Measured scan of single mutants.
Amino acid sequence: MKGKVVSYLAAKKYGFIQGDDGESYFLHFSELLDKKDEGKLVKGSMVHFDPTPTPKGLAAKAISLPLE
């Protein structure tokens, strides 16, 4: 699924993505496929991810940034 980063707290390594389906997904650095892309996780960045339901809500897994 595609989505847009709505927040990312680099110090805490987490944030949120708004998916194309309108839902909010929890984003964690550990799910970023290329850790070098962390600096690109800023508000408004477009990402691809696997939407995954968890006991705490919806989460983004296997997060990647589109090729530039």
Rank of each mutant, 00 (worst) to 15 (best):
P53Y: 13
Y25C: 02
K2R: 13
D34V: 07
L67A: 13
H48I: 15
S45C: 15
K13H: 10
H28F: 07
D50K: 14
T52K: 13
M46H: 12
K36T: 12
A11K: 13
E38H: 07
L9A: 10
K12G: 06
Y14F: 11
P53E: 13
D50V: 15
M1C: 08
S24F: 14
M46A: 11
F26D: 02
K36L: 10
K4H: 13
E38T: 05
G39I: 14
V42W: 08
A10S: 12
L32A: 01
D21A: 04
K4W: 15
P53Q: 13
V5G: 01
K36G: 13
K12S: 09
K61Y: 09
I17S: 00
A62M: 10
H28A: 12
M1A: 07
Y8R: 02
K35V: 08
P51M: 05
A11W: 11
K61L: 09
V6D: 06
T54E: 05
G44I: 02
G19V: 02
G15Y: 03
L33M: 10
S7C: 14
L58S: 05
P55C: 09
E38N: 04
S64G: 08
Y14R: 05
K56S: 09
M1I: 10
G57K: 03
S64Q: 09
P66Y: 15
D20T: 09
L27E: 00
L9H: 14
Y14L: 05
V6S: 10
E23H: 14
D34L: 06
L67I: 12
S64C: 10
D34M: 06
D34K: 06
E31L: 03
E23R: 14
K40C: 11
Y8D: 02
K61W: 07
L32S: 01
K61Q: 07
D20W: 08
G44T: 03
G15A: 02
M46S: 10
K2T: 14
I63Q: 01
K4C: 13
V42E: 08
P55N: 09
A10M: 10
L9N: 15
S7K: 14
M46W: 11
Y14G: 03
G3K: 01
K4G: 04
M46L: 14
E38Q: 06
G15M: 02
F49S: 01
D21E: 03
S64R: 14
F29D: 03
V5E: 03
V5C: 03
Y25S: 00
M1Y: 05
I17L: 05
E38Y: 05
A62K: 14
T54P: 02
V42M: 10
T54V: 05
L9G: 08
F26R: 03
E31S: 07
S30M: 09
K12Q: 09
V47A: 05
L67E: 13
L58A: 06
D34Q: 07
K56F: 11
F49Y: 05
L32V: 04
A59W: 14
G22R: 04
D50E: 15
S45D: 03
F29A: 12
F16Y: 08
K4M: 12
G22T: 04
K35M: 08
A11I: 10
Y25G: 01
K36V: 07
V47E: 01
G57T: 02
L65N: 03
H48K: 12
L41Q: 00
T54A: 07
H28D: 07
I17H: 00
K13L: 05
G19D: 03
T52V: 14
M1L: 09
G19M: 02
V42N: 08
K36S: 13
G57V: 01
L33K: 11
S64A: 10
L32N: 00
P55L: 11
T54Q: 06
P53T: 13
V6I: 13
G57L: 03
A60R: 00
S30E: 09
H28L: 06
G57E: 00
H48L: 15
S30T: 10
D50H: 15
S30L: 09
K40E: 04
I17R: 00
A62H: 14
M1T: 06
A10D: 08
S7Q: 11
A59R: 15
S7N: 11
A10L: 09
D20Y: 09
A10Q: 11
I17W: 01
L32K: 00
S30G: 08
G15P: 00
P55W: 09
L41S: 01
D20C: 14
L27A: 05
G57M: 04
F29W: 14
L65R: 05
L33R: 09
A59M: 14
T52F: 15
S45L: 14
D50Q: 15
Q18W: 11
T54N: 07
Q18G: 05
A59E: 07
G19H: 01
F16L: 06
G3D: 00
K35D: 07
A10V: 13
M1H: 06
F49P: 00
E31Y: 08
L32R: 00
V6L: 13
F49N: 00
V6R: 14
K2V: 11
I63D: 02
G22F: 05
A59L: 13
G15S: 01
E68D: 13
T52N: 10
G3H: 00
E68S: 12
G57S: 03
K40R: 14
K2F: 13
K56H: 11
K13A: 05
K61N: 06
K43R: 11
I17P: 00
L41W: 01
G44A: 04
P53D: 12
E68I: 12
K43E: 08
V5Y: 02
P66H: 15
P66A: 15
I63K: 01
P51G: 10
S30A: 09
V5A: 01
L41C: 03
S45H: 10
F26N: 01
V6W: 07
L32C: 03
K2M: 12
V5L: 07
V5D: 02
V47P: 01
F16S: 04
S24N: 12
K2Y: 12
P53N: 13
L67Q: 13
K35E: 09
F49G: 00
K35N: 06
Y8A: 03
F26M: 04
H48N: 10
A62Q: 11
D20R: 05
K4Y: 14
M46I: 15
A59T: 11
T52L: 13
A60Y: 00
Q18S: 09
L27N: 00
L67F: 12
L33E: 06
L58V: 05
Y25D: 01
G3V: 02
K61V: 09
H48E: 12
P51C: 05
L58Y: 08
M1Q: 06
P55M: 09
S7L: 14
D50N: 15
L65I: 13
D34Y: 07
L9R: 12
S7W: 15
K12Y: 11
P55S: 11
K36Y: 08
A60P: 02
K2N: 10
Y25V: 02
D21C: 04
A11T: 12
T52S: 13
K35P: 14
S64K: 11
M1D: 03
D34W: 06
G3Q: 01
G15E: 03
V47C: 02
F49W: 01
V42D: 05
S30K: 11
L32D: 00
S64D: 05
K43Y: 13
P51W: 08
G15L: 03
D34A: 05
K12N: 09
F29G: 04
I63R: 00
G3M: 00
L9V: 15
E68T: 12
S45N: 10
L67H: 12
V47W: 04
